[in-house]
Design a protein around this nucleic acid. Structure first.
Lengths: 142, 142
DNA sequence: CAACCAGATTAGAATTGTTCTAAATCAATT
DNA sequence: AATTGATTTAGAACAATTCTAATCTGGTTG
């Protein structure tokens, strides 16, 4: 029942991968399902691997690393640097910023509209601005 | 010659350390001299260690790590997170932001006055803003 | 639809950056 | 000078990530 086949091809993981030029293998599709299933997410490699394992997905840690990097290069993910020694990947690739809760390691999006950065100095000669990252570091109240 | 003893105690490394509550050991003084000698600097542990070695300063890498962390806790340095898997320490502890040249790993200060961030959303309940970091990521011009 | 093959996956080793450990050394005081 | 608690150190340990070489698989071909 339920003749599907309508979606603008956005919700089907395999299609999304193909569009990004990535072969939709079992592992990539499984990870894409976890990542792009619902709302925006922020994951670490270890975290995503644990999640996949918990869902009996049988993906090696090396593949999780490979996949996160490939997705990032393909523009499906964005890397967020907030903690030295650990990489976060954000499924929200649009223009926005972050709250980072230092005690818990939790990352939270701040829509671009809310916050504005003014007075950007021009990039030094020979360089161009690739991105402006704003991280609001939070600690526990008092 | 040259009766010194005038400085407001800012330029003497040992005094600066004592004021920060750190015993001015040979190693700490040596590193402080490298760090606070002149203008603002951005160093990594490995980089500073190499510098110290080049200057025949005989400081172990472990001590460089310890010292950078102690200086940071004491407020003499500030850690800047721009690259996962490598920590940068900035001798400029005032309010300012950074250019980060992704290809070379070079960090460059942007004085706080130049750039302004408006529309900061309020921190989630229970949390307070510890700091707002703005990193302008640069890549090579076309 | 069987064979093929470039690309993908994997376990485990290797690398990198950093912290830890336990012993030796040192700065400041007595 | 002796004492002592902090500091330094070499090297081991650790954590996150990448690499390697062997195996497997998706998509194409004949």
């Amino acid at each position: 029942m339920k003749d599907a086949m309508h979606e603008p091809s956005s919700s089907d993981p395999a299609a999304r991968l193909r569009r990004a030029g990535l072969r939709p293998t079992r592992q990539r599709v499984a990870l894409a399902r976890l990542l792009f299933g619902v709302e925006d997410r922020h994951v670490t490699a270890e975290g995503l691997h644990a999640e996949a394992s918990a869902a009996a997905m049988e993906v090696s840690l090396a593949t999780v690393y490979n996949t996160l990097n490939q997705f990032t290069h393909a523009g499906l993910l964005r890397e967020v640097v907030v903690q030295s020694g650990r990489s976060y990947f954000d499924t929200n690739t649009g223009n926005h910023h972050h709250f980072f809760h230092e005690r818990t390691g939790l990352l939270q999006d701040i829509p671009a509209g809310a916050l504005s950065v003014a007075g950007l100095p021009p990039p030094p000669p020979g360089a161009k601005v690739a991105r402006v990252d704003v991280v609001i570091r939070l600690t526990d109240d008092d």
